[in-house]
């Protein structure tokens, strides 16, 4: 009898739970790294659900291919994590609506006028080294090219990785028509090319390579999460390529108010202050003096190089082919 009462109690409890009003669902498409326990996803989910009275659900995968496959029938309400080098393809789907936020509130080192894709964090390409094993790091891109050939660098493939793509655009932005010479000079120093960022970074932390193509914000992870102050980004006066991640709203969303609320949440201080340590990158709309402790001391480049979506689309193919042809010799 006791068990029956218990069972009845459990049943009533669960049905009471089920009777609470069904919360609307906001479906957010994000890159795979984004929603993992170690990415920014969980913090953002908790933060937004506190204010929206809704259920934020992430769905992971390759963003652009997936949107192209799904077309109008996409389940997404919001897409987060599109970098500026793929927004052209995303825009061409015609699936996106204006973000409705004030671009002048952004604190990016470049001017942003896009009304559809809203930046939420940024960083720059940079070569990372370990100061205990590299006493004299290059102080410019030219110095990098002049390094002895036994200093080994590991980079990512621009055909399979966005950071690799950013590198060829970086070289193109500095050297233009002379890019092929630059790659020829770099070739003997390039230990190898990996498919994605994480394999490269693993080779670097394992001591296989002296320098790795990564982001200006990479040292922050080692400093704030590991108390390791030996990993540094080499800062070059020629400038660093700007990498920005954006968020955008789907026109056909069935919860437009929620999607709009999410867009303004992205611009809020609550969101912006968690981004640095959650995604190891710089917040897009937060003055430097409000950055988390220590972040303002992070060495950042004075000059920022950036290709707009149109410029990037125009030079991508040629820049990649120059890279491939020169390194294949």
């Amino acid at each position: 009898m006791k068990y029956l009462t218990f069972a009845a109690g459990v049943l009533t409890a669960s049905s009471a739970f089920a009777e609470s009003p069904v919360q609307p669902i906001l479906t957010v498409y994000a890159g795979d790294y984004f929603t993992s326990e170690w990415g920014p996803g969980p913090v953002i989910e908790k933060g937004f659900e506190k204010i929206c009275d809704c259920d934020l659900q992430f769905s992971t995968g390759d963003l652009v291919p997936r949107l192209l496959l799904e077309g109008e029938r996409t389940k997404a309400d919001v897409v987060i994590g599109l970098t500026s080098d793929v927004t052209a393809k995303a825009r061409a789907t015609g699936l996106f609506a204006p973000h409705g936020q004030d671009n002048s509130a952004l604190t990016l080192p470049i001017e942003w006028t896009d009304e559809t894709f809203l930046p939420f964090n940024y960083g720059h390409t940079a070569f990372i080294y370990n100061e205990t094993t590299m006493a004299t790091p290059p102080d410019s891109f030219d110095a990098l090219l002049a390094m002895p050939d036994d200093v080994k660098i590991v980079i990512q493939d621009p055909r399979t990785s966005l950071s690799g793509l950013a590198l060829v655009l970086w070289v193109d932005a500095i050297y233009g028509d002379k890019s092929a010479d630059v790659w020829a000079q770099l070739a003997p120093k390039i230990l190898t090319v990996t498919k994605d960022w994480s394999s490269s970074y693993g080779l670097f932390t394992d001591g296989e390579a002296d320098m790795v193509l990564s982001y200006t914000t990479s040292p922050a992870y080692h400093m704030f999460a590991e108390d390791d102050f030996t990993k540094k980004a080499a800062i070059f006066p020629e400038g660093h390529y700007f990498m920005v991640e954006t968020v955008a709203k789907i026109t056909g969303t069935d919860v437009p108010e929620l999607a709009d609320a999410f867009m303004s949440y992205v611009m809020s201080e609550a969101f912006q202050t968690v981004i640095p340590t959650a995604n190891w990158s710089l917040p897009s709309a937060l003055p430097t003096d409000q950055w988390p402790e220590g972040w303002a001391q992070l060495p950042l480049p004075e000059k920022v190089l950036f290709y707009s979506e149109e410029e990037s689309t125009a030079v991508q193919e040629k820049a990649i082919e120059t890279w491939r042809a020169t390194l294949s010799q």
Binding site: S36, G41, T60, S198, A225, W280
Partner: peptide
């Protein structure tokens, strides 16, 4: 994938992808 139903290799890649 569905973020809540991931396999072991996927988790391993995620760990690698977040330093």
């Amino acid at each position: 994938g569905d973020p809540d139903r991931s396999t072991l290799p996927l988790q391993m890649y995620r760990l690698m992808g977040s330093y």
